[in-house]
């Protein structure tokens, strides 16, 4: 049994909120640079260049890459041999978010009740996903999610007979409808299988995987590659002004499902697919 004080959790989450919002991860920067060579539209190339410049400026000045600093999504993989002391774990996660958004000069974008819609003014509460793992450590990922892209996401309960072609069609149609709204070039997280909520969480988790790393399963990797190729034939292009590069990557995660079902969730994210991770 290892003891972890909540103060350490608060501090870690505060820093992760700030880091995730200031610094674009290397895998995304690499793909943006590659996209400069494949984009055929001049205005598309200009936009990608500006996104790269924007990321470098955010890093240098330590400011947010994008003004939509998101709703904080926190993945907590808690080792089963960890003993948390000093207070309530959920409160400490939210305290870390509160401090990170305040001290990092990040935008507060959360309303307390979805109907009454009054801003909570500190970007809490976070959306928290707990997972129990082996060991005596806690692995934390903070993934701030912007809603320009979140709003264009979709979930569908397909029939098993819809098969691979049905899955591909649903993903591509979702991107086509989204058009310019989610700030292309986008990153597409897909969850296939499980139940409705499991598919949605898988889709969100898929966005945490480096975008240059394909799924280990060969038949899933093939779907990722083929769907990406087809998405980039849609013509939407950077900022939706027309071009080759509509998406930088398609990341798919799968889970077992019911004999009667084929849930598919498509979580769209922008080039500002942010996450910062730490293990304590």
């Amino acid at each position: 049994m290892r003891t972890i004080h909540i103060d350490q959790i608060v501090k870690t989450i505060e820093q992760l909120c700030i880091d995730a919002n200031y610094y674009i991860n290397d895998d995304i920067m690499e793909e943006l640079n590659k996209a400069l060579k494949t984009e055929q539209s001049q205005i598309g190339v200009d936009i990608i260049q500006n996104l790269i410049k924007n990321a470098l400026m955010a890093k240098e000045r330590k400011i947010a890459i994008c003004q939509d600093t998101g709703m904080a999504v926190v993945f907590m993989d808690v080792g089963q041999d960890v003993h948390i002391v000093g207070g309530n774990l959920i409160d400490s996660i939210n305290e870390g978010v509160r401090k990170g958004y305040e001290n990092g000069y990040l935008r507060k974008s959360v309303v307390g009740d979805p109907i009454e819609r009054v801003n909570t003014k500190d970007n809490t509460p976070a959306v928290i996903h707990f997972n129990i793992i082996e060991g005596d450590r806690i692995k934390i990922s903070v993934a701030p999610k912007g809603f320009g892209s979140e709003n264009m996401s979709s979930i569908k309960m397909l029939k098993p007979s819809d098969g691979i072609e049905g899955i591909k069609k649903f993903i591509i149609d979702t991107i086509d409808i989204a058009g310019p709204n989610p700030c292309p070039p986008i990153i597409v997280g897909v969850g296939i299988g499980g139940t409705m909520e499991k598919a949605a969480i898988l889709a969100k988790k898929a966005l945490l995987r480096p975008i240059n790393k394909r799924n280990d399963l060969n038949h899933i990797k093939e779907i990722e590659n083929d769907v990406l190729k087809k998405i980039n034939m849609l013509g939407i292009g950077p900022s939706g002004l027309g071009g080759r590069i509509t998406a930088l990557a398609v990341n798919i995660e799968v889970f077992s499902t019911h004999i009667a079902g084929l849930p598919v969730a498509v979580n769209i994210s922008c080039h500002a697919t942010r996450h910062a991770d730490a293990t304590i």
């Binding site: 996104l51 924007n54 400026m57 400011i63 939509d68 922008c270």
Partner: peptide, 25 residues
């Protein structure tokens, strides 16, 4: 350009809240 908020901010030379300050952002 969506997603270029850090860059775009450099083109804004003054800012003044003129209504509904209670709405924050």
């Amino acid at each position: 350009i969506g997603g270029a908020g850090a860059l775009i901010a450099q083109k804004i030379v003054s800012e003044e809240i003129i209504a509904f300050p209670e709405l924050g952002a």
